[in-house]
Design a binder for these strands. Structure first.
Lengths: 166, 166
DNA sequence: ATGAGTGCAAAGGCTTTGCATTAGG
DNA sequence: CCTAATGCAAAGCCTTTGCACTCAT
C-alpha cells in the first residue's frame, strides 16, 4: 500500500508537485516550490508561523494562499495535532505514510513509522467495520499520545518543589 | 484500561463533572451542566456552532468560557477532525474510549468502537516503540478516514455529468 | 454582602480576500 | 500582451477578554 512510494527523492517530490498543480491548471511557481521544499525537509508538520519564519521572504498572504492551492492540488495536507493552530505537511504519497507521536504537554510532534502488522490491521482489517457504518475506508490517521522526556522531567521537578498544590 | 468506565450512565456523568469542577474550585453551574448534557447526548464531537445552536439560550462567550473551564477540569476535550473549527466532546473516561470515522469529503464524524485486539495493539503494543523515541505512551488517537455513502453517491453523479473535466 | 457565573460588546489573532503590481508563457 | 502569481493592506471569522449585572452562598 505504500512501499516504493515511501522513498521519494527530492527531485521527484518537485516533479509530482508540478504535475499535480498542472492538473488543476496551476503553475509551480517559485513561491510554491519554496513551500514544498520547506515541508519536504521538515521532520514534523509545520504550523504557519514556522513556515513563514522559515521562508521569511514570502509574505503571509502568499504562504496561506499557496498552501491552500497546494492542498487543493493534493500536494500538502492540513493536519491538526494538539488543538491550536493548523499545521501542514506533504501529502501522504509524497512524504510516505507515517504517523505522529505527540507530546500532550508541549505539543511537540515527531513523525513515526509503525510496524507493517499494525498498518495492515488498520487498513485492511478495518474496512468491514467502517462498511457497516456506510463508509468506504480510504485511510487512517493515528497519533500516539505521550509525554516527551523533557516534559516528564519538568513534571518531576514540579512535584519536588510543590507538594500537591495547584 | 477502560472496562467499567465505558458505561457511565447519565447521572454519573454529571456527578463526575461536578466532582472534577470542585477539584479545581469551580461550580457545576446550570450553564456548565447544560453543556455537559449536550455533549453527553451527541454521537460525535460538536463544533462550537453546533453547541451554540443546540443551547441557544447560552451566549457564545459563556459557551467558550465554560467549555474552557470544563476542559481544564478534565470533563471535556478539544478534538480536531477535518481541519476547520475546533470540536468538543466529553473526556475519554466519561464518554468511554472510542475513535472517529471521518468522511474526507463532507467532514462528517461518527464515533466508532474498535475490536479489543486493535486497542491492545495500539496501547500495550506501541509503548516500546515510543519509548525508543524518548516518549512515555499515554494513549492514542485514531481516526478512520473514508467516504460516507452520501458523498460516494454524489461523487458518482458528478462522474456522470462531467466526463473528466475540472 | 461577597465572590462566582453570566451576558453583552469590544478586542485579539489567525486566516482570507481585494486590488494594484510584477512576472511567466 | 494576457493571465497567473505576488505583496500589501484591509476585511472576516472564530475566539478571548473586560466589565457590569445577577445569583448563590
Amino acid at each position: 500500500m505504500s512501499g516504493d512510494l515511501d522513498r521519494r527523492n527530492a527531485s521527484s517530490v518537485h516533479d509530482i508537485a508540478s504535475e499535480r498543480l498542472e492538473a488543476i491548471d496551476q503553475r509551480y511557481s517559485p513561491g510554491r516550490r519554496r513551500l514544498v521544499d520547506v515541508l519536504a525537509n521538515a521532520s514534523h508538520p509545520l504550523v504557519t508561523t514556522e513556515i513563514t519564519s522559515a521562508t521569511d521572504e514570502l509574505p503571509q498572504s502568499s504562504v496561506y494562499r499557496n498552501l491552500s492551492i497546494l492542498e487543493e492540488a493534493g500536494v500538502v495536507v492540513k493536519v491538526l495535532t494538539t488543538g491550536e493552530r493548523a499545521a501542514f505537511e506533504l501529502a501522504e504519497d509524497l512524504k510516505g505514510h507515517h504517523h505522529h507521536l505527540v507530546c500532550v504537554d508541549c505539543g511537540r510532534v515527531i513523525d513515526v513509522d509503525l510496524p507493517d502488522q499494525v498498518e495492515n490491521l488498520l487498513s485492511d482489517g478495518m474496512s468491514s467495520l467502517v462498511a457497516a457504518r456506510g463508509f468506504t475506508l480510504i485511510g487512517h490517521r493515528l497519533d500516539l499520545m505521550g509525554r516527551c522526556d523533557q516534559c516528564s522531567r519538568s513534571r518531576r521537578e514540579e512535584s519536588f518543589s510543590t507538594s500537591s498544590v495547584k
